[in-house]
Design a binder for these strands. Structure first.
Length: 601
DNA sequence: CTAGGGTTAG
C-alpha cells in the first residue's frame, strides 16, 4: 500500500491519524478504504498539527545558544526525528545557518537518508538564494547518495563561480558526474571565468580539461576565456594561435576583454605589428577597439619605455573624437611623470578637470608621486592635503607609502618619519614597502643606525623582509666601513631565506677591499663564482687592485683569470697596480704566469 | 543583474 513519502509512525502521527479517522467517520466516510493515505486536506491538517511544536522548536534553535544539549529533554525524540516534522522545521526556518545547524544535529542521531525532502528543500533554497558557501558545505556534508536536482547543481556552480569559490565547484562537478549528468557549456563557462577572476590558472585548465573530457566543445565565450587564460599565463603566442584557429573555424570571437589582453601581451613583448594586426582583426570582426583596448595600448607603451608613443596614441584618440576617461588620463599622467615630462602631466591634470572629471585616489597618487620624483615637494604636499580634504577620501597604506617614498627620495627624513608615525597613530599597519622605503631613505642620508632600527621593527611586526630590505643597509654599512655588521645582516638574510641580489655580494667584496681585507674579499668573490653569479667588471678591478696592493699576487692572478674568462678586460688603474706589484715583487714566475694568462686570452 | 583598464620600493 502506498504511503505518503515522509509518513513515519510516531505517537503524534498515530494520534493525528486517529483524530482524522474519527472526524471522517462521523461524516459517514469510510476511513478504512484509505486508512494510510492522506488527502491533501489531511496532509495540511497534519502539518498544522506540527506547526505549533515546530514553531516552538524553531524559536528555541533561534534563541537558545546551546539548544542541542537540552532539546531532547523538552520534546519526544519521535517528534524531533520525524521526517515530516523535520520538513516543517526546514520550511519554517528562514535563517539558513540555523537550518544547517539543525540538520547537523539531526545527523548526530539519525542518518540523513531518512530526510530526503528536507535535504532537497534546504539545498534548493540555499542555491536559489545564492548562498553558495552554505549550499556547498551542505552538499559536502550530506551522504553521497544524496542526489540534488541537476538544475540545482548547475545553479550552484554558477553562484559559487560568481562568488569566487571556484575550487568548490570541483565538488559539484564531480557530483554531477556521479549522477551521470553533463553540465552545459555555459555552466563550464561560468566556472572558467570564475577561475580567471580569482587568478587561478591551475583551476582554469583543470576545468577546461574536465569540459573536454565531458565531450563538450567550447563556444565563442569559451574561446575568449581561453585566450584570457593564456595571456594571464604569459603565453601570448599560444593565445594568438588559438584566436587564429578559432577565427579560421568560423567562430566569431567578440570578447573585447580577450582582445585587450592580447593587445596588452603583445605590447609587453614589444610586438607592435601584432598589436596593430589584432586591432585590424577586431575591426573586421565587428568588435571595434574600445576604451579598454586603447587603455591597454597606452599603458603597455608607457610600461615599456615607449611613453612618447603612448602619448601620441593618446593624442590621436582625442583628435579622432575619442574622449579619454579618468583611468586613461591617470595612466597617461603617470606615464608622462615617469618619462620626466611633468609639465605635460600637469597640463593633462588640468585638462581632465576641464573635461569634467575629478581626480580620484589613483590620479592623486600618480601625480603626487610624479611631483616628488621631480623634486616638487611643496606641490606634492599641497596635492596630498587637497586629496585628504576630499569627502570620498580614505587614507590607505599605499597613499602613505607614496608620501613616505617621496620624502625619502628628497632626503626629507624628518617628514618621512612624521608620516610613518602618523600611520601608527591612525592605527594603520605599515607594510614591507613602507619599511623598505624608510630603510632606504635612512641609508641614503647616512643614518644607518636608524635604518637598522627600522629593520628591527619590521621583524618585530612579523613582516617578511625582502631583498630590498637588506640591500640598502648592506650597501651603506659597507660604504661606511662597517663590513662586519653588513655580514651580520647578510647572515640574517640567509637565515630568513631571503635571496641576496647579485650586487649585494659585490657591496661586501667592495667593502672588504676598502678595509684592505683582500683575502676575505677573494673568498667572497670565489663564492659568488661558485654560485654562478656574474660580478661587474669594476668589482674585479677593485678586488685585483686590492689583492695586488696586499701582495697576494696568486689570488690576484686567479681573479684575473676568472675575469678574462668572463670576457672582461682589466681596467687601467688595476692593471697598473698589478704590474707595479709584479715588478716590485721580484717574482719572475708571477709575471710569467701573467703572460700565460694574457696569452691564453 | 551587465565585464574588462590605472597608483607605492626594488
Amino acid at each position: 500500500m502506498a504511503r505518503p513519502p515522509h509518513y513515519h509512525s510516531s505517537i503524534i502521527n498515530l494520534l493525528t491519524v486517529k483524530q482524522q479517522l474519527l472526524k471522517r467517520s462521523r461524516g459517514g466516510f469510510n476511513p478504512f478504504d484509505q486508512s494510510r493515505h492522506f488527502t491533501p486536506d489531511q496532509q495540511q491538517q497534519q502539518q498544522d498539527h506540527f506547526t505549533d511544536t515546530a514553531r516552538q522548536v524553531c524559536e528555541i534553535i533561534r534563541t537558545r545558544p546551546r539548544w542541542e544539549q537540552t532539546i531532547l529533554s523538552q520534546f519526544p525524540s519521535q517528534t524531533l526525528f520525524d521526517p515530516t516534522f523535520v520538513d516543517q522545521i526546514i520550511n519554517h526556518q528562514t535563517n539558513p545557518l540555523l537550518s544547517l545547524r539543525f540538520l547537523t544535529w539531526i545527523r548526530t542521531h539519525q542518518s540523513l537518508d531518512q530526510y530526503p525532502n528536507s535535504c532537497h528543500a534546504f539545498f534548493d533554497r540555499l542555491v536559489q538564494s545564492n548562498a553558495s558557501k552554505a549550499a556547498h558545505s551542505l552538499l559536502r556534508s550530506l551522504p553521497p547518495q544524496f542526489a540534488p536536482k541537476f538544475q540545482s547543481l548547475e545553479s550552484l556552480i554558477q553562484s559559487l563561480s560568481r562568488d569566487g569559490r571556484v575550487e568548490e565547484t570541483l565538488d559539484v562537478f564531480s557530483k554531477l558526474n556521479s549522477i551521470g549528468a553533463t553540465p552545459s557549456v555555459s555552466v563550464f563557462n561560468s566556472a572558467l571565468i570564475g577561475a580567471i577572476r580569482v587568478q587561478r590558472s591551475d583551476l582554469f585548465w583543470g576545468l577546461y580539461r574536465e569540459m573536454i573530457e565531458c565531450g563538450l566543445i567550447g563556444d565563442a565565450e569559451t574561446a575568449g576565456y581561453l585566450i584570457r587564460a593564456f595571456c594571464r599565463d604569459g603565453k601570448v603566442d599560444e593565445a594568438y594561435e588559438l584566436l587564429r584557429q578559432v577565427l579560421d573555424s568560423g567562430v566569431v570571437v567578440t570578447d573585447s576583454v580577450a582582445f585587450a589582453k592580447l593587445v596588452s601581451g603583445f605590447c609587453k613583448l614589444r610586438n607592435y605589428d601584432r598589436v596593430s594586426e589584432i586591432l585590424h582583426v577586431m575591426i573586421a570582426k565587428n568588435c571595434a577597439p574600445n576604451v579598454f583596448t586603447y587603455q591597454e595600448i597606452i599603458h603597455g607603451l608607457c610600461r615599456n619605455g615607449m611613453g612618447s608613443e603612448g602619448f601620441r596614441v593618446f593624442g590621436d584618440l582625442k583628435r579622432r573624437g575619442y574622449a579619454p576617461d579618468l583611468v586613461m588620463y591617470t595612466t597617461m599622467i603617470d606615464g608622462l611623470c615617469k618619462m620626466g615630462r611633468i609639465g605635460d602631466a600637469r597640463k593633462l591634470w588640468f585638462e581632465l578637470i576641464r573635461d569634467g572629471f575629478a581626480p580620484n585616489e589613483y590620479t592623486y597618487n600618480v601625480f603626487i608621486d610624479g611631483n616628488f620624483k621631480h623634486g616638487n615637494v611643496g606641490e606634492a604636499k599641497r596635492l596630498y592635503e587637497e586629496m585628504c580634504g576630499r569627502e570620498w577620501f580614505r587614507l590607505s597604506v599605499l597613499n602613505c607609502n607614496t608620501m613616505v617614498s617621496g620624502f625619502c627620495l628628497n632626503g626629507r627624513m624628518d617628514e618621512a618619519c612624521e608620516m610613518f608615525e602618523g600611520m601608527l597613530e591612525k592605527g594603520m599597519e605599515p607594510d614591507v614597502i613602507t619599511y623598505n622605503t624608510m630603510i632606504q631613505g635612512f641609508c641614503k642620508v647616512g643614518k644607518t643606525v636608524e635604518a637598522v632600527n627600522m629593520y628591527g621593527k619590521l621583524i618585530e611586526k612579523g613582516l617578511r623582509p625582502s631583498p630590498a630590505t637588506y640591500t640598502p643597509m648592506i650597501q651603506a654599512l659597507c660604504d661606511n666601513g662597517d663590513v662586519k655588521e653588513a655580514i651580520g645582516l647578510w647572515n640574517d638574510m640567509q637565515c630568513r631565506g631571503v635571496e641576496p641580489l647579485v650586487c649585494t655580494h659585490e657591496y661586501i667584496i667592495n667593502g672588504l677591499c676598502k678595509q684592505g681585507n683582500a683575502g676575505a674579499g677573494m673568498e667572497w668573490m670565489v663564492s659568488m663564482l661558485q654560485n654562478k653569479l656574474r660580478p661587474l667588471r669594476k668589482t674585479f678591478d677593485g678586488l685585483i687592485e686590492c689583492l695586488a696592493s696586499k701582495g697576494l699576487l696568486d689570488d690576484a692572478l686567479l681573479a684575473l683569470h676568472y675575469m678574462f674568462g668572463m670576457g672582461y678586460v682589466l681596467g687601467k688603474p688595476a692593471l697598473n697596480s698589478l704590474l707595479g706589484q709584479l715588478c716590485k715583487d721580484d717574482s719572475f714566475r708571477a709575471s710569467e704566469r701573467l703572460e700565460g694568462i694574457l696569452d691564453g686570452n
